[in-house]
Simulated scan of single mutants.
Amino acid sequence: MGKLLLILSVIVLLLLWESAIAATITIPVAFGDDGDGICKSMVESQGYTCQEHKVTTEDGYILSLQRIPVGISGNKATKSPVLLQHGLFMDAVTWLLNPPTESLAFILADDGYDVWLANTRGTNFSRGHTSLSPTDQDYWEWSWDELVAYDLPATLQYVHDQTGQSMHYVGHSLGTLIAFSALSEHKLLNLLRSAALLSPIAYLAQLRSSIAKFAANAYIAEALYKTGMREFDPREEAAINVLEDICKKTNNNCSDLMSSFTGPNCCVNSSRTIILLEHEPQSTATKNLIHIAQMVREGSITMYDYGSENENNKHYGQSSPPAYAMANIPDDFPLFLSYGGQDYLSDVNDVKILLDTLHNHNGDKLLVKFIEDYAHADFVFGVNAKQLVYDDVMNFFQDY
């Protein structure tokens, strides 16, 4: 019974947000080209119109996109496109899990926005490639650098080409990191009107999750990579063994892993757990987890460190990986940032470092909202997120 409770608690944790530790479960839902897509399973089932799209990145990954072009009333969108970008171990279902009155995708559609949902490489409906299979190790040779360099540009360009308009962007967690990094390099500015970044991830050195910090400092992802594990599948039994070991070494209560990782979420809609289990957790690249662990250890935001001066020179022409300089984000680009006082991953002190780097940002182009009671998952699953966050996001969009 103890083992079963541990496994179930791991599943709930991963469903409610990010960690490089995972669970095993048999899910009675078919994924990929032979299964029902997100439109059919999550959007049309709520009475909304939905379109499935595909976009191919420059390095050959075939990503799925969903579009909600009208609200529940049937009226066509009259406002700008909005792209929603999920975080680690999740896909676009992030924005659809709660009832329509609580889920950001539906709320935006009902307010007249043309809503687009992104799905990064390796997730359930973005596992295609022009020449590789997910069973090939080379398919998984990427980190979030490639999300910045390939996935995000391809997705934004596709939405622009389809709509003829620049768009607003909403990211959560890892979805904020790739936006910050792209903006710091002055990429994609011609495609974006503004960005709303929830639980912003830029600096990670002060995250409060002792389990996550232990995993980074113990080089667990690096060890898995050396064994040949390129795809990190949260359902593999090996992950349970890793988790048990970490819990023992950090004296954490594995029956309450969600709080241990993400912080004590105040307002998550627990009644949606069955729907969560039908869609999450999902795979990522082990190399991606290594890159995140490097951020935790180094306290900086750089490209992937290949571990030696020679290897870095081969990839970057310099001995150390180039930095993503947050201070280089254009001062006149509209940003909305919202973070929580109980968030163990987007820690208050790390967010303050980020805000310090943005101190020259135009005052009327940077809106910051702090919510004392919110932890990491509350921003996407909170039953009161509309009142506390999403209404402000839509007001912010209206200004730009």
Rank of each mutant, 00 (worst) to 15 (best):
D36A: 10
D364N: 08
Y225K: 06
L13E: 11
I275K: 10
D356S: 15
A22P: 08
Q157I: 11
L337T: 06
P69M: 04
K352W: 08
L147S: 04
Y219I: 11
R230G: 01
A179K: 07
V93S: 11
D305Y: 05
G35A: 03
N360R: 15
Y374P: 00
D399N: 15
S319G: 12
T262I: 08
M229P: 04
S271T: 15
V115K: 00
S9V: 09
T78A: 14
E309A: 09
S194C: 02
R127L: 06
V70G: 01
E222F: 13
V268D: 03
N310G: 05
G71S: 07
F379G: 02
Y61K: 11
L358C: 03
F232Y: 12
A325S: 13
G263F: 04
A182L: 10
T155E: 07
Q294M: 05
S320P: 10
I62K: 10
S255I: 13
A92T: 14
F397K: 02
D245Q: 15
G74D: 09
Q46L: 09
S9A: 06
V296H: 06
S45E: 15
V389R: 03
V389C: 02
N124Y: 14
Q162E: 03
S133E: 14
A239V: 14
Y225I: 00
K187N: 01
I301V: 15
K226W: 10
Y225M: 04
Y113P: 00
L367M: 12
M394A: 03
G60L: 06
L65W: 03
I292T: 07
L191P: 02
